[in-house]
């Protein structure tokens, strides 16, 4: 059953990795640990659910299953809408809250606390609107197919895994090969100098929010598809996301993905050898270990 454990770990890990890329980006460029990132994940799942349900009702053809997957075209369309809407939500929060604090030169910890307040607000609003009852994108049950050495996975799970790998590559390329990516990295290192180099820092920061929120949206839809949709889904994912971002080294996109997989595998091992009830504690112990042994993370620069 070791093969199955690895498979489960990789699937959960790719989900964590996806969320952690968003956190590591916003963390390194906006320079604070955003506790509301988990809520972007949850809101995205509900956005996608609402849009895909509406689409499916209006055009029933769109909810017919796509090939081996459990969902129809309405879900990918819902995901695209969710990326846009979550981006707008993040920009809205930035304009209303974070940008004002930044303009005042607020310290990191004030921004962290603002994120905490925003998280409370956003999460409980979801609970108010949708109640805490779990929801699902589809009611279709999928059969896990045998893969190798007795390990099984559903087509949805394999799609998620593939999507995660593709997105890491895409984000990495955007950061290293495009003008917008260079601008983000420059702003991450030194905002004043970025301005002197002709970069519009305010615009770049808005871009980072959009980018981070879109990634949160993919993670949220994936978590909603593979597990379930709940107002607390993002909150519960937050600790693994932070652990992965720090383990990977803040700012490192490949690092966040690899660390996400490590966290996922560690959780799967915990479920297998210790017990499922301790799963949520795994991230904390990874976090403790990394802070004690290598606080800059596996792929981070010392002193960062």
């Amino acid at each position: 059953m070791i093969a199955q454990m690895l498979m489960d770990g990789l699937i959960a890990g790719s989900m964590i990795g996806l969320g952690a890329i968003g956190i590591t980006l916003t963390y390194s460029i906006l320079r604070f640990a955003n506790f509301a990132h988990g809520e972007l994940v949850s809101w995205a799942a509900y956005f996608a659910l609402s849009v895909s349900t509406a689409l499916g009702t209006a055009l029933p053809g769109l909810s017919a299953s796509l090939g081996p997957f459990s969902f129809g075209w309405s879900l990918p369309l819902g995901l695209i809408a969710a990326m846009a809407l979550t981006g707008l939500l993040a920009l809205f929060a930035d304009t209303l809250l974070f940008a004002r604090l930044r303009a005042r030169g607020a310290s990191t910890i004030i921004l962290v606390m603002a994120g905490f307040g925003a998280a409370l607000t956003l999460r409980s609003l979801l609970e108010f609107i949708f109640t805490s009852k779990p929801m699902y994108f589809t009611s279709a049950l999928q059969i896990a197919r045998p893969l190798f050495a007795g390990a099984r996975a559903t087509p949805d799970q394999l799609l998620g895994l593939g999507l995660a790998v593709a997105l890491v590559a895409a984000v990495h390329l955007i950061l290293t090969r495009t003008a917008a990516g260079r601008a983000m990295r420059a702003v991450s290192e030194n905002q004043a100098l970025a301005g002197l180099a002709g970069i519009d820092v305010a615009k770049t920061i808005r871009l980072v929010w959009l980018f981070g929120a879109s990634l949160a949206a993919v993670a949220g839809v994936m978590a909603g598809l593979l597990v379930q949709i709940r107002p607390y889904m993002g909150h519960d994912l937050l600790l693994p996301l932070f652990a992965a971002a720090i383990l990977g080294g803040i700012g490192s996109v490949p690092g966040a993905m690899i660390a996400g997989l490590i966290v996922g595998l560690a959780e799967a091992a915990c479920v297998n050898f210790i017990g499922a009830e301790w799963r949520a504690a795994v991230s904390f112990f990874i976090l403790v270990a990394i802070l004690l042994l290598r606080p800059q993370g596996l792929f981070g620069k010392a002193g960062a």
């Binding site: 003008a179 260079r182 990295r185 290192e189 180099a197 002709g198």
Partner: peptide, 14 residues
């Protein structure tokens, strides 16, 4: 944290 080339490239991006 950027390469020499990236330092110049990002200034040229404007």
């Amino acid at each position: 944290s950027l390469s020499i080339g990236e330092n110049l490239q990002l200034a040229a991006d404007v």
